[in-house]
Design a protein around this nucleic acid. Structure first.
Length: 594
RNA sequence: GGGCCCGUAGCUUAACUGAAUAGAGCAUCUGACUACGGAUCAGAAGGUUGGGGGUUUGAAUCCCUCCGGGCCCA
């Protein structure tokens, strides 16, 4: 790794010149206006060298140039030492990537981790927010896999509670036995329809009661349809066979619908957890905590945890009637998962940032209960997706449905593909598949390129873009390279490692691309450390952009020098495969033609 | 009442965790070969990084304060 070597050389130089050691070597990419690729910021070193920043920079530059063997030239601007790495070194770096098909893929380390994402309710279909959630979780899982982890992808499905009983109640009253088959609707959509139906009826009944002088709060409880839903929830808890049957039938419809959506999204799971089987967990753990003295009981019998020493407040874990709260379940589920997968060192929870407090508390509690792995639990907190009209609200019907959005993206992609007419020899089926790849690529890239922590804006009109900083731009670059490689094969040009050795100098555009290719592994590590697919998205865009610049500046096949020609083909190959790998980390596929 | 997050070009965003003239894309304007794919490339214009103060050789980044937006806990 070039950066590592450079750092070591710089440390040696400082030791030799000033008889001092530097901990932090501040290396950064050189600004475009100066010659060089790596820049050493010399201000901090000037402090220990007891000389001015410029002189310090010059001395280090001189030393490196004569002693290191990798620095060809240097220039000093103010306190910045710009280093020009010799082309031989760049070519060597390229060669090591080229000759290693496993570049950027860490062999299995034996480490294991769990990533949770999606985690929907079963009363309504998936929406735009779930898309961001799923793509993020899936991508982080992919990044960790590439880092050598064995990753277990899970979700917890909120399949019980009043919300699904509302859909059940409405279906019972107005459904007339309607099923996905009889209606031709996707199961999750059908159940969602009855959830809306419930809400509409409930509102009407509340209004009626209010007109009779009942208070709003009372009216909401007394509305007959609400009473029915509550009654069904009680029946469910008593395990009434008829209620359980309807419950599992309707949930079954939803799962079939979700399955179709996940499949199209290209995400999957290794294990599913259901709240109906986990909601009673955790109570024993909490009681154990009371015995151990990490929790305490109040006079009314409720159990609390005191987090004031951690800068938070007191939090209830069991109500006075002994019933659980959400936190209790989450404690139980976390422990269950570590029993199911004893080798995992931690869990990543992909959940919106409104739950930040909840997870902070959860991890603290798990730590107090003595679980070491609590330290390795991470809340992958992401911001809401806003619409130009503001927040998505199901009650106001402003929710962007996941299936609809994917349809729309693919449709735009297909229209564009046909208009450009570059793939005339393709069958309809092939065009469909390609459009799916492009449409979903655009959507995933759009949702992943922004820092997960940030709240993001989704404008349905402007977000469907296929030019510029988008997934299709990168897919296009890949397809274009593939076209070059086909031509090279047809011309019988076959690059090999030996021919690379005959290349002595590089064009600036080539150096830039190699610089980017060389960054892949460190960007991958950074993305893992930060749990941020956005870092990969930014990286792969930069790489594609650099390659396109090279492509425009240098006509590859005009080259008469055979070694150079072969080098450029090899170079294009490596770029394509790096693009392919990086995009795969985002869950995006790249085409051969488009 | 207590706590957390955010504010960067008209819009969407980046900045390697304190470094050079704050990078991109969209939109606007100008240009690109009979050549390997124009979903591309080159260029112009667009910024008091919400306001003010402080620390520092150096601040979008750290501290204080005010303004504006979002979220959580009781």
């Amino acid at each position: 790794n070039l950066d590592f070597i450079l750092r070591t050389e710089i440390q040696k130089a400082v030791a030799a010149l000033f008889n001092q050691s530097v901990e932090q070597v501040q290396l950064q990419p050189t600004n475009a206006e100066f010659e060089g690729s790596h820049t050493l910021v010399c201000f901090p070193i000037a402090k220990i060298s007891k000389k001015g920043p410029e002189e310090t920079a010059r001395l280090i530059g001189d030393y490196l140039q004569t002693n290191s063997g990798i620095v060809r030239r240097f220039n000093v601007v103010k306190g910045f030492l710009n280093l020009v790495i010799s082309d031989e070194v760049w070519i060597q770096i390229f060669e090591s990537v080229y000759s290693n098909p496993w570049h950027g893929i860490t062999p299995q380390t034996g480490r294991e981790i769990m990533v949770e994402y999606s985690s929907p309710n079963t009363n309504k279909p998936l929406h735009l927010g779930h898309l961001r959630n799923n793509f993020l979780g899936y991508s982080v899982a992919g990044i960790y896999t590439a880092l050598g982890y064995s990753v277990h992808k899970v979700q917890i499905i909120n399949d019980r509670g009043i919300h699904i009983c509302k859909s059940m109640a409405a279906w019972k009253l107005f459904g007339n036995g309607e099923t996905p088959e009889s209606s031709g609707m996707k199961g999750d959509k059908l159940v969602g329809k009855y959830y809306v139906e419930f809400d509409r009826n409930h509102k009407a009944q509340v209004k009626e009661l209010e007109e009779k002088g009942v208070s709003k709060d009372e009216a909401e409880k007394q509305a007959p349809i609400m009473k029915l839903a509550v009654q069904m929830l009680q029946q469910w808890e008593k395990k009434d066979p008829e209620t359980l049957k309807l419950w599992s039938t309707m949930n079954g419809w939803v799962y079939a619908g979700f399955e179709a959506t996940y499949k199209r999204m290209g995400v999957d799971f290794d294990k599913l957890y259901y709240e109906s089987t986990t909601y009673l967990l955790g109570k024993e753990e909490v009681l154990r905590g009371v015995k151990q003295g990490v929790f305490f009981k109040k006079e009314d019998g409720s159990v609390w945890v005191d987090l004031t020493v951690d800068g938070l407040d007191q939090k209830v874990l069991l109500r006075s009637d002994g019933t659980s709260v959400y936190m209790t379940q989450d404690i139980g589920t976390a422990i269950l998962r570590f029993r199911d997968f004893p080798k995992i060192e931690g869990q990543v929870y992909t959940v919106g940032n409104e739950q930040e407090y909840h997870f902070k508390v959860l991890f603290l509690i798990l730590g107090k209960l003595g679980y070491e792995w609590a330290k390795k639990c991470y809340h992958l907190s992401y911001g809401m997706v806003d619409l130009p009209t503001g927040k998505m609200k199901s009650r106001e019907g402003t929710v962007v449905d996941a299936d609809d959005l994917m349809d729309e993206m693919v449709e735009v992609a297909e229209q564009q593909t046909r208009e450009l007419g570059k793939i005339e020899d393709s069958t309809d089926q092939e065009i469909k598949e390609l459009s799916e790849m492009i449409g979903l690529g655009a959507l995933k890239f759009f949702l992943l390129k922004v820092d997960p922590k940030k709240r993001m804006m989704f404008d349905p009109n402007e977000s469907i873009q296929l030019q510029g900083y988008t997934g299709p731009f990168i897919q296009y670059t890949h397809a274009r390279i593939k076209s070059i490689l086909r031509k090279a094969a047809a011309l019988n040009i076959h690059p090999d490692v030996a021919s690379l050795k005959n290349v002595k100098t590089l064009e600036p555009a080539e150096r830039e691309v190699i610089f980017k290719i060389n960054q892949y592994t460190s960007k991958l590590q950074e993305a893992g450390r930060e749990y941020s697919p956005a870092i990969i998205a930014n990286y792969v865009y930069d790489l594609a952009k650099e390659y396109n610049q090279f492509y425009q500046a240098i006509p590859i096949f005009n080259e008469s020098d055979q070694a150079k020609l072969k080098f450029r083909i090899a170079f294009s190959q490596v770029t394509a495969s790096t693009i392919q790998k990086a995009m795969r980390l985002l869950g995006i596929f790249v085409p051969e033609k488009m």
